[in-house]
């Protein structure tokens, strides 16, 4: 099921980014062993990166040639933040970054608990009591399933060592 936004502002910028990325990748692939022989370590990476360069240029041309569907009355950048990266995505991305980077310090249980609590209350908007209990239930079941049943070692916190 595809449910991405139908309007794609800044598509051209994205096409330029992937083209630049491909060219850099090709240059890096060339750096591995150059054209020293047909079976050197760098040949296949160069083939892959070369394919990326070619296809990204085709994408770039297709995007540049495609007609702009609407009058450019709305700022492209504003539309980008409305359609591609709206507030909800930005907040969740921020939460995820904070969550994953705090995990080595706080440990899995604490950081996941905080992350789940904040994101449930942000996305769901129920009362604190409901959110708290759902967080507790989910955390307990994740702990039970993974630590007890699957015997997975969960990340422990630097600061709370031995506690969680």
């Amino acid at each position: 099921m595809s449910n991405v936004p139908s309007e794609r502002p800044a598509e051209l910028v994205f096409a330029i980014i992937i083209s630049v990325f491909s060219v850099v990748a090709f240059w890096q692939a060339y750096e591995i062993s150059g054209f020293s022989s047909a079976h050197s370590a760098g040949v296949f990476p160069m083939l892959a990166a070369g394919t990326m360069v070619l296809s990204s240029f085709v994408i770039l041309c297709q995007t540049a040639r495609a007609p702009v569907p609407r009058h450019r009355t709305v700022n492209e950048l504003r539309l980008f933040f409305r359609r591609v990266l709206p507030l909800r995505q930005l907040v969740m991305l921020g939460l995820m970054v904070a969550y994953l980077f705090s995990m080595p310090w706080l440990g899995f249980i604490v950081s996941s608990g905080i992350f789940l609590l904040i994101s449930f209350s942000y996305l769901w908007g129920k009362s604190l009591l409901v959110t708290l209990s759902v967080t507790a239930i989910s955390l307990a079941s994740i702990y039970f399933i993974f630590r007890v049943v699957f015997q997975v070692v969960l990340p422990q916190g630097e600061w709370l060592r031995g506690l969680f």
Binding site: F115, S119, F120, L123, G125, S138, I142
Partner: peptide
């Protein structure tokens, strides 16, 4: 709203 944070965890 519950599913998405759980997927991330």
């Amino acid at each position: 709203a519950i599913l998405i944070p759980l997927i991330i965890v």
